[in-house]
Nucleic acid binder design. Structure first.
Length: 666
RNA sequence: GCCCGAGUAGCUCAGUUGGCAGAGCAGCUGUCUUGUAAACAGCAGGUCGUCGGUUCGAUUCCGACCUCGGGCUCCA
């Protein structure tokens, strides 16, 4: 029997008997390695450890300490989940179950259209741990498609995957492109169709937790049946699992919906309607400061401020294309004078009066402002800015806190440029947007380029390509990661969106910048060029906050409710130790208010300790305590958020410190 | 919109064979006058999400609707 030679990633070569497997290779190197091995990569292709190695291959042994091991562990654990559910619910069938970020899921159809309950998750978890304790092997085998279909006779969704793959569509990644279909058998009763690879046996799988269950359409389409999905998280080590669960708890504490109530910032009165927020006085201060600073920066950057109404006749949205492409996202129209005569202004069938719509976007109004008179190339780029409140009829299941609402205010601008100016202007806009976001405390970004949405877009391929290229060039010049979002553009043009990572690493879509060749055409916009001829301007849509509401919610979570001094509703609270110090406390407050600071005094009706505790709960930047010493020397005791108490601080030096915090936006 | 779950005091939550509704915190009134994260006492506070049904009687059982949470789809 001849030997085979295997090259390891470090370049060394090992000789093994013919037919040797990854397991053999690992064992020949070391016991520890054999124990930790999860799968092997043969010439870059992942394979089971049990598969024979081909002569001359380069082989990397993936252990559970390496980052890419988690995906294999998750996928294998998904099989255990499927086995558990199929055992617990005789007659159940299963669809797909991929590894995802931090874990995996699996979709099932339970007999009689059943659904999972929270208690079911506990039963499934217990069954999974039995399967893992039994240390069942994952045994691979392959069948021709005909036999594969027979094997999966009771599992129609698996057969759909096979049929799709046979017709060249393996978008789900369930089957692979070969002539045969691979399976993994754990027990005589449980076989799952799968590309693999898998860990050698279920005993390798330990650190998972079932987290949620819910409905999910088969293959993600509303046209398909709804299946029952179970989600789980899974990690190679217990420490990583616990770390993840801990991060989840920390994120829950930052939830802006919870903090919005606790800090008295905003609410969603049921009487008003789903997805419609009201801002309370404290939230109002934060919001006004956010908006004021934005206005100031926009003014400095050459934007002009405009205003437009909340409702308009249907014709405007007919011209803009919104009624053709965005009608699902709009509130139904108000029918005015429904029995009157058609005024000839359109917006309804003959004799049915006029329809008015709540506006879902601000762009048509800004276009009308542009078109209100003849424009010269000397005016371009013309930058119009509005805090424009728009209304969108979001489907009932998607409304979520301030991040997904039905009424929102966009910090919306539309820039009209010549074709020649477009790329420069896009670069200026992107730099402006990133700079401003940094002032709001977000400084970790990546960019996403969204291209033409097939089937729901207006305009020619050439126009789309040109606009997309311009955006790509600008994005690439920023030295920030760029990812492609195929088909994610708006109906009128491609876009760059800025994704920001917050204090605990979650990403949020913030600003969008969209190039639009379409609306200028639809509204027949023009300007007079240096040549005396009429030319078509190009329009750029951009919002920096996205919506003020969403941005507000993101900032609450980013700062965990502890706003930096420049945004804090109350920057300083002065606490007299006893009533005798009340006059001094008020004098201190008066002095600080004179500097423009937001200050309150809370008298000595309660113990000092309790008043401190309340102020800390409200996450104020500074609490000042004044007692006998401070009255005598015109000082204050400074208790800063997240810092040590300082005594006998001269009032003036505290004022300078706070002014510094505010100026630096910290 | 679809699948699942939940709505009890301002907040967090108890409340089972269907029989007059509970706690802590917050609020209000007193007392206490305090040097850095919970002083003491008292009072008040609820159409038990809404509407209908079953019942002698419904917070409790049934139905519809509204709102919220999780998931799918969608999205600023």
């Amino acid at each position: 029997m001849s030997d085979i030679s295997i090259t390891l990633p470090d370049g060394s070569v090992r000789s093994l008997p013919e037919g040797a497997t990854g397991t053999d290779l690992a064992a020949s190197i070391g016991r520890r390695l054999a124990k930790d091995a999860v799968v092997v990569e043969v010439d870059g292709e992942p394979r089971d450890l049990a598969a024979p190695l081909p002569d001359g291959a380069t082989v990397r042994i993936v252990t559970d300490r390496e980052p890419d091991a988690a995906e294999y562990l998750r996928h294998s654990t998904a099989h255990v989940l499927a086995q558990a559910v199929l055992e617990l619910w005789p007659g159940a069938t299963f669809a797909g179950g991929p590894a995802i970020e931090n874990g995996f899921y699996y979709d099932f159809e339970l007999p009689g259209g059943g659904t999972f309950t929270d208690e079911d998750l506990e039963r499934i978890d217990a069954k999974m741990r039995e399967i893992i304790a039994a240390d069942q092997p994952f045994e691979r085998f392959e069948l021709p498609i005909g036999e594969a279909r027979e094997l999966m006779a009771d599992h129609p969704y698996k057969r759909v995957f096979m049929d799709l793959a046979a017709s060249g569509d393996d978008a789900d990644g369930e089957v692979g492109g070969g002539d045969t279909i691979s399976f993994y058998r754990n027990t005589p009763a449980f076989v799952d169709m799968c590309l693999g690879p898998h860990v050698p046996s279920t005993g390798r799988l330990k650190h998972f937790r079932l987290t949620r269950h819910g409905g999910a359409y088969f293959r993600g389409s509303e046209a398909n049946p709804m299946l029952q999905r179970v989600y789980a998280v899974a990690f190679p080590t217990k420490a990583e699992l616990e770390e993840f669960l801990h991060r989840q708890e920390e994120a829950a504490k930052r939830d802006h919906r919870k903090l919005g109530v606790e800090l008295d910032l905003f609410s969603f009165p049921e009487e008003v309607g789903s997805g419609l927020a009201v801002f309370h006085p404290k939230g109002g201060i934060v919001r006004r400061l956010m908006e004021d600073y934005s206005r100031q920066r926009h003014e400095e950057a050459g934007y002009e401020f405009v205003y437009s109404p909340h409702i308009t006749k249907a014709d405007l949205f007919q011209t803009s294309g919104h009624l053709d492409w965005f009608a699902d996202g709009m509130f139904p129209p108000m029918e005015l004078d429904p029995h009157g005569h058609d005024q000839g202004d359109g917006g309804g069938e003959e004799g049915t009066g006029t329809s008015y719509y709540l506006k879902p976007m601000n762009c048509p109004f800004h276009i009308l402002i542009f078109r209100s008179r003849q424009r010269s190339y000397r005016e371009l780029p013309l930058r119009m800015f509005e805090f424009g409140t728009v209304y969108r009829y979001e489907k009932s299941g998607v409304v979520h806190g301030l991040t997904r609402v039905r009424g929102m205010t966009q910090d919306d601008a539309h820039i009209f440029t010549t074709k020649e100016q477009m790329t420069d202007e896009l670069g200026t806009i992107l730099a402006f947007v990133l700079d401003l976001l940094r002032d709001y405390g977000l400084d970790d970004f990546y960019l996403e380029l969204s291209t033409k949405p097939e089937g729901k877009a207006v305009g020619t391929d050439e126009e789309w390509a040109e606009a997309t290229d311009a955006l790509r060039r600008v994005a690439e010049s920023m030295d920030i990661d760029l990812v492609l979002d195929e088909g994610g553009g708006a109906f009128y043009g491609p876009k760059i969106s800025v994704q920001a990572r917050d204090a605990i690493g979650r990403t949020w879509q913030m600003s969008t910048i969209q190039v639009d060749f379409q609306l200028p055409q639809r509204f027949d916009l023009s300007y007079v060029g240096a040549d005396g001829e009429r030319h078509r301007p190009i329009m750029i849509h951009r919002a920096l906050f996205g919506s003020v509401e969403r941005f507000f919610g993101v900032l609450v979570e980013h700062y965990a409710g502890a706003f930096p001094a420049w945004l804090a509703p109350e920057q300083v609270r002065v606490l007299p130790v006893a009533d005798a110090h009340a006059d001094h406390a008020h004098a201190v407050a008066h002095e600080l208010r004179g500097h423009g600071f937001r200050v309150a005094v809370v008298g000595a009706d309660e113990t000092l300790g309790n008043r401190i505790r309340r102020a800390k709960g409200e996450k104020l930047p500074y609490v000042l305590v004044v007692g006998d010493d401070d009255v005598a020397h015109d000082t204050v005791g400074v208790n800063p958020r997240g810092g040590e108490v300082e005594r006998n601080v001269p009032l003036q030096s505290f004022a300078e410190r706070l002014a510094g915090d505010i100026a630096s936006k910290r």
